[in-house]
Computed example of a mutant assay.
Amino acid sequence: MPTPFLLLPLATLALAAWVTWLAIHYAIRRRLVDLPGERRSHQVTTPRGGGIGIVASQVFACSVLAFLYPAYAFALLVFAVGLLLVAGIGWWDDHRPLPALPRLGVHLLASLMLGGVVLGATGDPLKAAFCAFLAVSLINIWNFMDGINGLAASQAALVGIGVAVLLPWPLGIAGAVLAAGCLGFLPFNFPRARIFMGDVGSGALGYLVAGLLALGMCTTVLAPPLWLVLPSVFLVDAGFTLLARILKGERWMQPHTQHLYQRFVKRGRSHAIVTVMYASLTLSGVAFTVFFSSLPLGWGWAGGLGWGAALAAAWGFLRIGLFNKDDD
């Protein structure tokens, strides 16, 4: 394996850790903190905004890869600008909360930029539209699911590992650097949180995951549902929780504690146990995807759709057990 493929993830990890450490001191000095509350899963006041370390590491990695591979420089530049837009509006929101509409507008713009990259690479408008929709969805899903220690970063790291295994090199380096950036942040957030990711990190992770999935869909012949197995734990918990709230006529954009991971915590499970549970399921999904990737395309479609259906059924079963009228 060429030396850059070994050194770049290590440099990415180190940069993420260093910037996260700086972010802790910045947040304390600026009183940028999350307070405990009824809609929160933590019990102590904690600094936020540590996700800036992951963002810095990924922008750095994009710059290095653009230098090493000039043919991909423009696509990497557009993607990095989209990442900075998502992270920037999140950073602003961490400091001074914004209405939903401006944030969604920026998310849509960044997602359309990713769709434009896909269109330029494939000439397929349907694939480009799907990737743009996936990006705006995952930006918000990662934000919704970033509620307990280590959950959002560990899930993104596992998606990165899956992509690194599934894609041929040098393309697989993209998954490796995302995993490395998340691993640089995780010691500050798991099992005990010295800092939270904040919107600057959660939205950016959703965009980064979308970028990896778009890369896989553009450069391989694997069935799209198989790629969606990688973030399926978040897709199912966030998506079906949102659908349930809409069907009940609730104000679905308001903060709540109805995701399964939040209910597990309310029932007495520790953040560490729940994060490990979700990580174990996603790791199983990675192994499942790797296995089905070696089978004919039709098996990939069947496997991806079957995994999604099984996960949705499990979500419904657990929801019945974890919810009751007194909890609501």
Rank of each mutant, 00 (worst) to 15 (best):
L7N: 05
L7P: 08
P9E: 03
L10M: 12
L15D: 08
G50F: 06
G51C: 11
G51V: 02
G53Q: 04
I54P: 12
A56V: 10
V59T: 10
F67A: 15
L68V: 10
L76P: 12
V81L: 15
H107R: 05
A110L: 09
L112C: 15
M113I: 01
L114P: 13
G115E: 03
A121C: 09
K127A: 15
K127Y: 06
A132V: 05
F133H: 02
W142Y: 15
N143C: 13
I148C: 13
N149V: 06
G150W: 00
A152S: 15
Q155V: 13
P170R: 01
L183N: 05
G184N: 04
N189G: 15
R194M: 14
D199H: 08
L205H: 00
L208Q: 07
L208A: 15
V209W: 05
A214V: 05
G216L: 10
T219N: 10
T220F: 11
L222I: 09
L230V: 08
A238Q: 03
G239N: 04
L242I: 09
A244E: 06
R245D: 06
K248D: 13
H259K: 07
Q262R: 06
R267Q: 12
R269W: 14
V276Q: 01
V276W: 04
Y278K: 00
Y278G: 02
A279D: 04
T282D: 02
L283Q: 02
V286Q: 02
A287G: 14
F291W: 13
S294E: 11
W301K: 03
A302V: 11
L305R: 02
A310V: 10
A312Y: 03
L322S: 07
D326N: 11
